[in-house]
Simulated assay, not measured.
Amino acid sequence: MTVDADHVADDLESVLLTEVRILARVGELAAGIGKDHAGRDLVMIGVLGGAATFTVDLARALESQVEIGWMAIRSYSTSNRASGSVRLLKDLDIDIEGRDVIIAETVIDTGLTMSWLISSLNQRRPASIAVCALLRKPNAPQFAVPTYVGFDVPAGLIVGYGLDYRGRYRNLRCAAVLAPHAAR
């Protein structure tokens, strides 16, 4: 049995994106990345834990070889508001110097983590850096690097397709807005 929206319907305000729609868009994002980076030495960096599902699906949709690396970052916040503090929990263990880097992230909200990542990775002298985010919330900042975006989504606590709330819903196969009563 797989976990879908029907299994947790009482906890969800609405389903934003079905698994079918997500995977179709992931394929389109991969095609754009493949075209823009054809013949280049490509490294995809996934941000653990929320972007693991997206990173793997995106890499599998590419029509060329890609090395995958992982980083874990925590941005500290209170009441879902970013405090401005970022802590590296797991550093990248592959060399990116002279290589094209794609940072894969499931959702960009405040941009705090992504800004920190771009700055940190630039110090390692890659040939280029681009961001690929499946979801972008309102008021997300623009970055000074190429950015691929799957979907613009409304504000709210989004769960599923790798995104969690207190460790739950990460294996939900769609992306959904968590209902206020479930976020207490």
Rank of each mutant, 00 (worst) to 15 (best):
residue 41 D to M: 02
residue 111 G to P: 07
residue 100 D to E: 13
residue 133 A to I: 07
residue 102 I to S: 03
residue 84 G to H: 10
residue 114 M to I: 00
residue 39 G to T: 14
residue 53 T to S: 13
residue 37 H to T: 15
residue 99 R to C: 15
residue 82 A to L: 10
residue 113 T to H: 11
residue 132 C to A: 10
residue 12 L to P: 02
residue 37 H to E: 09
residue 63 E to K: 15
residue 119 S to H: 02
residue 45 I to H: 00
residue 36 D to V: 14
residue 92 L to I: 02
residue 57 D to S: 13
residue 14 S to G: 04
residue 16 L to T: 09
residue 74 R to L: 10
residue 61 A to D: 10
residue 125 R to N: 08
residue 53 T to R: 13
residue 78 T to E: 10
residue 50 G to F: 04
residue 119 S to L: 01
residue 84 G to D: 09
residue 72 A to P: 07
residue 24 A to P: 07
residue 131 V to G: 03
residue 23 L to G: 05
residue 123 Q to P: 01
residue 123 Q to W: 04
residue 43 V to I: 11
residue 121 L to Y: 06
residue 109 D to T: 06
residue 37 H to M: 03
residue 69 G to P: 10
residue 122 N to G: 03
residue 76 Y to A: 02
residue 89 L to P: 04
residue 118 I to K: 04
residue 58 L to N: 00
residue 59 A to N: 06
residue 125 R to S: 08
residue 32 G to Q: 14
residue 125 R to I: 05
residue 124 R to G: 01
residue 21 R to A: 15
residue 134 L to W: 12
residue 34 G to L: 08
residue 116 W to G: 07
residue 98 G to P: 11
residue 124 R to K: 09
residue 123 Q to R: 03
residue 18 T to N: 13
residue 13 E to W: 12
residue 49 G to C: 09
residue 131 V to P: 08
residue 49 G to F: 06
residue 109 D to L: 04
residue 71 M to H: 01
residue 16 L to F: 05
residue 83 S to H: 03
residue 98 G to L: 05
residue 45 I to C: 10
residue 38 A to N: 05
residue 107 V to L: 15
residue 99 R to F: 13
residue 112 L to N: 00
residue 35 K to D: 15
residue 43 V to W: 04
residue 114 M to H: 11
residue 87 R to I: 11
residue 55 T to M: 03
residue 54 F to R: 01
residue 33 I to Q: 02
residue 55 T to D: 01
residue 18 T to S: 15
residue 103 I to E: 00
residue 118 I to R: 06
residue 69 G to L: 05
residue 20 V to C: 07
residue 15 V to R: 11
residue 133 A to L: 14
residue 108 I to Y: 13
residue 102 I to E: 06
residue 14 S to D: 05
residue 52 A to T: 05
residue 65 Q to Y: 14
residue 130 A to E: 08
residue 135 L to H: 01
residue 98 G to D: 08
residue 20 V to I: 00
residue 12 L to N: 01
residue 91 D to S: 05
residue 126 P to N: 02
residue 110 T to D: 04
residue 44 M to R: 13
residue 26 V to C: 07
residue 85 S to M: 09
residue 18 T to G: 15
residue 56 V to I: 03
residue 133 A to V: 08
residue 68 I to R: 09
residue 41 D to Y: 01
residue 74 R to C: 08
residue 92 L to M: 00
residue 108 I to S: 15
residue 95 D to T: 15
residue 64 S to I: 11
residue 66 V to N: 02
residue 47 V to M: 10
residue 16 L to R: 12
residue 97 E to M: 11
residue 107 V to W: 06
